[in-house]
Structures are given as structure tokens and as C-alpha cells.
Design a binder for these strands. Structure first.
Lengths: 333, 333
DNA sequence: CTGAAAGCGCTTACAG
DNA sequence: CTGAAAGCGCTTACAG
């Protein structure tokens, strides 16, 4: 079997307490004994059992990350940020992909209640607000990622949607576009609302009147976006530019426009939002979120909470994205 | 604090042993006491502490997954398969992304030696064979994913590279191509060698002589592929078709050919290998691996090993991929 | 600076 | 069918 602390203390002729102190760099150990013990540890290739240690310490050095079932390059980049920050801070990461829409909470709270994790990062863009409240009530460190939350008591890190909407729109305006169609998300999505506010602000700054006909809605996927767009076209002329509130819609539109013989960017400029990998290949301009950094910040926030239980003042970080300019908004020559 | 087993047994007026038996559905508990205990468990909302349980049981119900640092949609799909299979079998998944090339082993063996995981899935396409041997020597359940392994004692699940190379090539031959350039991986890559063998077999079946000039090498990335390809072009005419041994190369070539005015598929047909998400958008035909299924099978294999320690007969699964036909190999009309 | 002892929260032979 | 007791492998006041 594996070497245990007990074998070390017997071999070194000291008590378990002493070995434990050496292991944890406790200052009150004489240099001699410390060295003697260390020698034995090395010789016997001892690695402490984390389970036992954690049971005593009542913590696990592990954080849970709850993903939506459908996750793409976008989420993997986020995960990369989470994992790298966690490992720098000596934490492990347990992932949990929710399988159907409903069981997100069940999985998360099981992990939490079984004490397998010290805290949770929630990456659930479409999780209803009341379920977030429910998890919050378990009273364990929690950070919501990639989603602006209205409740000020919930820690979150998200892209600054207002700023992003503003930048994307301003970028199009700079290119000379004035009739800018926005394909927004659904009613009630805070993310969409903030992007919309940014869109309006950019128009205002450029002295362009907001035209409600130029704001259509989707469910953040291409199917619903197409329906809305076809509807729009039956009634109105083609706009100068289209600002899609996420990349999936933008990529869909890129193909769709090609199909119906509309050239991008010559006839209409197109910009997305998110910055998924795909966009690079598709040469789609997009407002790129700092995904890896968002993952890293989420971990920092979470571990901060885990390690100082007292002051539970929630923070809500908004990280700024940047427009990555590609062919779809190239200046027309 | 959290409710513990002790509180349950006091409240129910039985011993800890009895509560434990109820928890684990041990048959030797009378119906009455079982019901009484269950009632208390429900009332006090007791969830057993997994740490304590695992320490007693000397296992963790957790498997580790070691990813390469650069991971894309391809690996996330694999992870999805791993996570879903694991959760069906009541296991948790700890991920560990290696940060620089060297520390893969260190991270994995730490997880293992600290007893945080019961077994490991290794997703390290480029990990040197000797490092795999090293991990193998820790003598803990291990499955290597997405990589054919020569050592018959190592469990692995991989795509059937020979079959894939054969199918991809046969697909091109069916399209009327005869001079088929293969952009292979590096010397010594078993994956590449197997794909090459499939390529040759397909040629043979079609009575096309193998031409060594039509097999060039890359390092499985586009930069090295370009260099090889330019080299090739200086000496030879454009082939009928190009079979790229992975999608990254194929996507790179797709753009590159466009740049130099070669039309796909009119002038040259193009097929990739892997089936990453990107290819769909790019309309690239590719030999698609059953990635999610590979992840699932890896978990099954691993858990099988974990749960019956006796018969350590290694299995090496080869799952078959399929050609997904898209525009890049469309029949010329 | 060091050790004996209790504790973390479960499980499981062993008796009865 | 049930309980007392030892054990899983660590940590940490408390004494000295």
C-alpha cells in the first residue's frame, strides 16, 4: 500500500505531530528534526493523502465549475483560464456539465453538500435567476461567470456588455455606416439589454436617431435570428450594417447573406459579439471578450471568498472587450 | 455547521453503524428502523460528507482527465463524452490542463499520489511514449485517449487511423481523383503512420501505384505543412486532391489555396481528418472521429479497471470514424 | 521544540 | 438485525 505518515514517524523516531509540522512548514520544529524527517519523507517517497488531510482541515482545495451542456470553443477558453488560475493558487477543478436543462442545481448542490468542493463557479448563461438564488442560499462561495446579475449580493465576472455594444456600434459608424440593424437577444436578457444600451449610446454620440425598426430580436441563435431578419426584410430595405449580438448569429448571417447574393462587407458590414474561435477563420469582425482572463478573475474572486469567510462583500467585475477587426467590416475601397 | 451522521443517529436513537447501513442500502436492517432513520435523514436534510466516506473506503469516485494545454473544440467534445459517461456511472471528473509541455506527468502523478483520483484519462496527443510508461509505472488505472499506443499493456481508445486513412482516400478516389497528395504528420507518429497505411491501402485497392513524391510531411500544424507544400510545388504539378492528416492543416490549406488562386474543389479536392467544429463552417470535408463516443468509452474502460482490480488485461479500442462530405470534395459538375 | 490524545465524519469486521 | 469499537490518515489545541 501507499506510504503513510505513520510509517514516516516510526522510521524517523518522532511523533505524528512532528511529521505533520514538517509537512506544513510549521516554524516550531528544530532544524535537526526537520532535516531528519525530510530525509525519511524523500527516501520513502511519501505523499500525504489529500483525503485525510482535507477531512481534518474541512476543506478540499477544489473548486467546482458548472458548465452548460452545449459548450463550445468559447467555454473551453474560459475553462482554460479557470484551470490555469486555479492551479497557480493550488486548487483543483472539478467540472460538471449539466445534462439537461433542469439538473444544474441538483448537480451543483450535491457537489457542495457532499463537501467535495469549497466553492462553485457557475457558467450558465441561460440559468434562470431564481435558480441562481437557490444556489446562493446554500451559502457557499459562489461566482457567476459570463452573465450580468442584477442581485448585488452575488459575485460575478462578466464582460462589460454596455461598453462592448458601444464599441461594436462605434466601429461600424466609423466605417461610415448609419443605418445599423441590431439583432438583439430575447426580451429580459440582461446581457442583451446592456448591449442594446451600448448600441443606443453609440448612435447618440454620433447624432444618429435610434430607429426602433432597426432593432430586431432573436433567441441568441441563428434560427430565430433568420426569422426575425426575413421579417425585417419584407418591410424594409437592406441596412448599411448589421450588429449581431452574438457570434453564432453573425456566422449564420454571413452565410445567409452570401446565399441571397448580398456581399459582405461591400453591400453590408457585419459584426458579431463574443469572439469565438470560428470568427477568425470566417474573417468575421467581432467584439472579443477576454475569455481566459474572465476565467482567471472568477477563480481569484472565488478563492478570495473561500479564504476569508468573514467579509462577504460581493464583487461584480466587468471586464472590457475589444473589437477585433476583420474582413466583414473592412473599409470599402 | 453541516449535519453529520452522528446527529442523525442520536436523533433516531440508533447507532452510527445502523445509520451507515441505511445510507448504503445494506440489507440487514429491519424495515422499521430503516424507515425511522430515513425520516430523520430527510427531516434534517443530511447529506453524507464525501471526504469522510472516501477516506474510509479508500477511493474517491473521481477520475482525472489530463488535457494538453492547447485544446480546442475537438477536446471539448471529448470532455463532454467523458463527463457524461462519468456522471452516469456516478463518478466525478477533475480536469487538469498541463501548462507547459513538461509538467504533465508531475501534475498527473500528484493527483494520483495524493489519492484525489481513482484513475486517469490521458489526453495527450503529443506526450512522449516514455512519459506514458512512467505514468503507467505508478500502477493506477490509466487510459490513454486519442492516440494509438504500441505498448499492449496500456489501455487506450483511439480512432481507427488505418480505417480513417483508407476511407478518406477512397472518398477522393470515388470523386475521380488519382494523383492524391498526402500531407502526413511527423516521422514516428503512430497516428500518422496508420493513416498513411490506410492511404496506401486505398490506392492499392484502386490499382493506383503509390508515388513517394506524393507523400509529404508536416508537424501536424499548418506552418510546417505550408513549407512542405511549397517545396512540393516547386518540383511538381498540382495534384488532383490533397488529403491532409488533420483538420488544422486542411483549414490552413483551404485558405492558402484560395490565396494563390487555386479553386477548391474545382481545381483540387481537399479533405481533412479529425472533424473539429470549424470544418462545418468552412465546408471542409473531413474524416470525423466519434469524439464524444471516444470520451465515453474511455470512461467505461477506466471504471472497469478501477472496479475490478484483479484482471488487468489491457484493452485497446479503435473506434471507426466516417467521412463527412462537404463542399471541398463536391463532385465537379 | 515535541508528544499524547482527541478529532475530522464516515465504514466495517466482530460479537451478540 | 444491531451496537461498540477500531480504523481510514491526517491536523491541532493542550501540556510539558
Amino acid at each position: 500500500m501507499a506510504v503513510t505518515l505513520k510509517q514516516i514517524c516510526e522510521e524517523a523516531g518522532v511523533s505524528k505531530a512532528t511529521v505533520s509540522r514538517v509537512l506544513n512548514n510549521h516554524p516550531l520544529v528544530s532544524k535537526e528534526t526537520r532535516e531528519k524527517v525530510q530525509e525519511v519523507i524523500q527516501r520513502l517517497k511519501f505523499t500525504p493523502n489529500a483525503l485525510a488531510r482535507n477531512l481534518s482541515l474541512r476543506r478540499t482545495d477544489t473548486i467546482g465549475v458548472l458548465f452548460p451542456w452545449i459548450f463550445n470553443g468559447f467555454f473551453s477558453t474560459l475553462l482554460r483560464g479557470v484551470d490555469s488560475a486555479a492551479s497557480e493558487l493550488n486548487y483543483h477543478v472539478i467540472t460538471s456539465l449539466s445534462h439537461d436543462a433542469g439538473d444544474e442545481n441538483a448537480m451543483a448542490s450535491r457537489l457542495l453538500k457532499e463537501r467535495r468542493i469549497d466553492g462553485l463557479i457557475l457558467m450558465a448563461p441561460s440559468l434562470p435567476a431564481d435558480q441562481i438564488e437557490e444556489l446562493k442560499s446554500i451559502d457557499v462561495p459562489l461566482v457567476v461567470l459570463q452573465r450580468e446579475i442584477a442581485d448585488p449580493e452575488v459575485n460575478s465576472v462578466s464582460v462589460d456588455n454596455f461598453d462592448g455594444g458601444l464599441k461594436a456600434t462605434a466601429h461600424l459608424i466609423e466605417r461610415g455606416c448609419r443605418r445599423i440593424l441590431a439583432i438583439a437577444g430575447p426580451q429580459g436578457s440582461l446581457d442583451s439589454d446592456r448591449r442594446e444600451a451600448g448600441y443606443r449610446e453609440a448612435l447618440k454620440q454620433a447624432d444618429i436617431a435610434f430607429d426602433p425598426d432597426l432593432l430586431i430580436r432573436s433567441n441568441f441563435n441563428k434560427e430565430t435570428a433568420f426569422t426575425s431578419f426575413e421579417n425585417f426584410r419584407r418591410r424594409f430595405a437592406m441596412p448599411d450594417a448589421i450588429f449581431c449580438f452574438n457570434d453564432e448569429i453573425a456566422l449564420g448571417m454571413l452565410k445567409y447573406l452570401k446565399t441571397i447574393g448580398v456581399r459582405v462587407p461591400e453591400d453590408v458590414a457585419l459584426i458579431g459579439f463574443d469572439g469565438i474561435e470560428f470568427t477568425e477563420f470566417a474573417e468575421l469582425s467581432t467584439l472579443t471578450m477576454p475569455m481566459q482572463e474572465m476565467g482567471r478573475q472568477a477563480v481569484r474572486l472565488l478563492i478570495k471568498q473561500i479564504e476569508c469567510k468573514e467579509k462577504r462583500t460581493a464583487e461584480q467585475l466587468l471586464l472590457k472587450g475589444a473589437v477585433v477587426e476583420r474582413n466583414s467590416t473592412r473599409r470599402r475601397s
